[in-house]
Design a protein around this nucleic acid. Sequence first.
DNA 1: ATCGGAACTTTACAGTGTCAGGCTCCAGAT
DNA 2: ATCTGGAGCCTGACACTGTAAAGTTCCGAT
Lengths: 200, 200
Amino acid sequence: MRDPEPLREALIKAGISLLEEGGAAALSLRRVAARAGVSHAAPAHHFAGLPGLWTAIAARAFQDFAQSLQRQVDAAPPDPRARLEATCQGYLDFAATHPGLFHIMFVSPEVNRADAGIAPHSARAYQILRDACLPFSSTSAPDPVLEIAVWSMAHGYATLRLHARPAGRPMPQAPAFAACLAALLDERTRGPLASQDEMR
Amino acid sequence: MRDPEPLREALIKAGISLLEEGGAAALSLRRVAARAGVSHAAPAHHFAGLPGLWTAIAARAFQDFAQSLQRQVDAAPPDPRARLEATCQGYLDFAATHPGLFHIMFVSPEVNRADAGIAPHSARAYQILRDACLPFSSTSAPDPVLEIAVWSMAHGYATLRLHARPAGRPMPQAPAFAACLAALLDERTRGPLASQDEMR
DNA sequence: ATCGGAACTTTACAGTGTCAGGCTCCAGAT
DNA sequence: ATCTGGAGCCTGACACTGTAAAGTTCCGAT
């Protein structure tokens, strides 16, 4: 069972490289087709149009994203604070390193984020953040408020650094994200053990 | 000195309505021209291309945004907590009510956010958030970490609610933003005495 | 062998941004 | 009074985009 639709695979890879080279504006069906060496209508046939291609790429991106997050968490020291910081740092790193994929994953209105190819990977990524937040819950159960607060802060910091940067108001010499996270967590550090450090 | 370039004004208004009706994808030079009743090349002449039109619209949007924020803060009770909550709520409301403008303001990579028409209004908006954060600083000086933490959390929450919503993972029944903000602030509420604050 | 459908290609069309010229009109210089 | 130059806007053209329809090739199942 090797090679399940090799062209589809090639088109996705071509799309990702286009995206990383020139941003979302550089990703077009015809360019993807040209890079894969097929006619311009082939991608539309496989993905049912541009939104379909974007959705397929987003699915792949979420998969890479969850993997990258998991790897970063696994490499962190075992204490809860370091693990949550590593999770957030992984989030920020991915956004900074792959702005095109990040855009497809979280911004583009055309991609269907409930797609069966996306949902499991995005859920897995969220579960990683969920696990990292668990030790900081005031009860022993997961704390959705904390999860959404951390997620929002990481996501907002990442996107603001990405887009609002040239505006130049406060972002360039902005405080490190770790400091912001500390402002959220310090009240809770009496529960688990605290670790003092800085990120980046 | 009334009516400085009425067509330019009409084009911006047409662009905004296009944006609010059909999102960023519906905003094109030619449609703007058609809606304003001029030839398809007129907008390009006035704004030096599509990015110029976007930038002009973003400038107008930041102006409205700062106004709306200010109005919401002024209508809030005078205690610091209520004022900061009102500021954040204004941020969230604007994003939810004008997703197209919000996209132009914070996401579109093509708009030059250092433009002279944008910078003053975006700076004013940031100053409003800055003022609202000031009473929660541990010192008497502004606390950039707190400002960026609040801004990131509000921005992240707003954008995740906008885009990640259809994915449907956690956002629909997500905790209210006020709860997330409380997680950030509660540690600090001993700091400021809710006695006297500055009004402008 | 033949039928049917999947995987493409070719052709065509409407819509997009951008550029190169035109046309008109009016303020300021001559 | 006339000339000049440019601002404001239009017409036409070009390259590029997504999408749809129809044609081709090929292979597996009947």
